[in-house]
Design a protein around this nucleic acid. Sequence first.
RNA 1: GGGGCCGUAGCUCAGUGGUCAGAGCAGGGGACUCAUAAUCCCUGGGUCGUGGGUUCGAUCCCCACCGGCCCUACCA
Length: 510
Amino acid sequence: MGRFYLTTPIYYVNDAPHVGHAYCTVNADALARWHRLSGDSTKFLTGTDEHGQKVADAAVKNGVDPQTWTDQTSRRFREAWDALDISYDDFIRTTEPRHTETVQKFLTAIYENGYLYKDVYSGLYCVSCEDYFTLEASDEGQCPIHHRPLTEMSEENWFFRLSAFEDRLLEYYEEHPGFVTPETKRNEAVSFVKGGLRDISITRTSIDWGIPVPWDPGHVFYVWYDALINYLTAIGYGRDDDQVEEWWPASHHLIGKEIIRFHCVWWPAMCMAAGLDPVSHVQVHGWLLVGGQKLSKTMAAEGGVRLTDIAPVVLTDEFGVDPLRYYLVRETALGNDGEFSHEGITARYNTDLANNLGNLVARVSTVVGAKCDAQSLIPGRDTELRTEAERAIDLARRAWERFAPSQALEATWGLIGATNAYLERHAPWKMESGKELDAVMADALESIRLVSILISPVMPSVAQEIWRRLTLEGSPTDSPQDESLVWGLYRARGPLSKGEPLFPRIRSDE
RNA sequence: GGGGCCGUAGCUCAGUGGUCAGAGCAGGGGACUCAUAAUCCCUGGGUCGUGGGUUCGAUCCCCACCGGCCCUACCA
C-alpha cells in the first residue's frame, strides 16, 4: 500500500468548463479511484486559478469585485465536477488564504536563496495578446499571433533566475527518466531546456489582483508563478511540513501538452530554487480535437463547433454520466491527441456499452434467473474463463500503473468479449437445468463480477448497479483490488432477475 | 522568425531496425436465438504523407519537401 498524490491543472476561472477540462479531470479521477481501490492512501487535487488581469477585468465588466466574480465562476467548475462524479479530495482556489500563505513562504525561500532579482523589464508589447515578446520571438517586430506592430514598454519586475538551472534540469531529466511521460513529451521538454533558458519576470506592478510580494509591497506575483505552487498549498507547504513529507515529492501531475513548459521546466526549477525536490512525475496528455482542430474559444468565434454544444452537461444529458466518463477515458491513450465527435461517442456507447457489456449482463441474468439454482452457482476452479479473466486483470493492473487507463479498459473489454464467446460455445440456453448449467453460468457471473470491479474507477455507478444485479453485498470497491480481483469469489445471495437494459441503445436514424 | 509534434486499412487509432504491418468500428459471408435486430465464427481491404540517404534490410534511423497542428511569458 503506497501513497498516491495526483493533481489536475487548476483551471482558469474565466473559461466555462468544457469537454477539454472534463477529459483531463475524468482521467485523473479514474486514476485516483484505481489507486484507492488498490489500497493506496490517495489524495486527488483539482481547483481553479483565479488571479490575473483578465479576471479583474471580467469582474469590472460584470460590475462586481474580483472575489465575488471568482466565487461565481469557480463554483461552475465545482458543479461540473460534482455532476461528473469526480471524487476530488480537495478543491483548491488560488484566492484562498492558505494559498497566499504557501506562495509567500515558498517564494520567500527562493528569494532568500538568491534566485530572485529586481530589474527593469522592457520589451515589445502586443495590445491584443496583453503580452510581451522578445525581438527574436516576434515576427520582425510584429506580433506573431496577431500580426500587428508591437510597442515598446517597460516595467520594473522581479525576475527568477531560471537560466541558472539549465544544467541542473538536464541532470534531473537524466537521472529521472520517468519524470515526464510519455517519452515524446519528455523529449520536447529536454530540447527546450537545451535550447537555452532566459530568466523570467514573475511579478507585476500594473495590476493588483494577485498575491502580494511580501518583501516588496506594490508588486504582485504573476499568475503562472502563483498557480503552480497550488500543488504545494494543498499539502500544507509552509504550514504543515509533516504533511509535505508525506506526499512530496512522490507525486503526479496530469497536464495538457500545451503547459509542458510550465510544469516540466519552470516548476522543477522553482522547486530546486526553494530547496525542495521537484515532483517525481508529470504525465502529459494530448487534446481532444473536433474535426482535427483544438477545442477552443477561437473556433467558436469563427463559427466552428460551439463550445456550449459540447459542455459536459449537454453530453451527460444525452448519454449519461458514466458513458461519458467511459468515452473520455477509453477513446484515446493519454499522451496522444484524439478525435472528439458525436458519432464517436455514440458508436462507443452502442458497441462497447450496450452491445457488449449491457447485453452480456442481460443475457446472463435471463438464463440464470430462469434456469439456475442460486445456491449452486459456484465458479469452477480451473476453467477456460479463468485464464481469460486473469490475463485481463493482469493487463489492466499494469495499464493503470503506467497511466494508461484506456488500455485498462481495452483489456477489460477483452474479458467481456471472451465471456460472450464462452456463452456461444456452451449455449447454456439449450442446456437442461442442473449442475452442468449452473457451472457454466457461475463462470459467466464470476467474469461479470470481475468486470464490475475493473470498470469501477471509470463507471462507478454502473459498476455498483451490476454488483447489485449479481445480488452481491456492499459494493465493488469495498475490498482492495488485490483481494477482490481473484477468480472464484462469486456467490449468489438469491435469485437473479433481469432488470431494465443498463444501456438502452441509441438510435441515430434521424 | 525560432522550437517541437503529427501524417499507418473507408473511419478512429495501436505498433516494431528484419517471419505474410495490427485492433475496434464500418463492409461482405455464415452460425445462433439466451440477450438491448444484440452475440459468435470467417472474411475483403493498406505504395505505413512524398522524394532522397544510412543499412544486408526501414513504416519504424537521418535529410529535404508537402500537408495538419502546437509552443514562443495566464485556453485541459
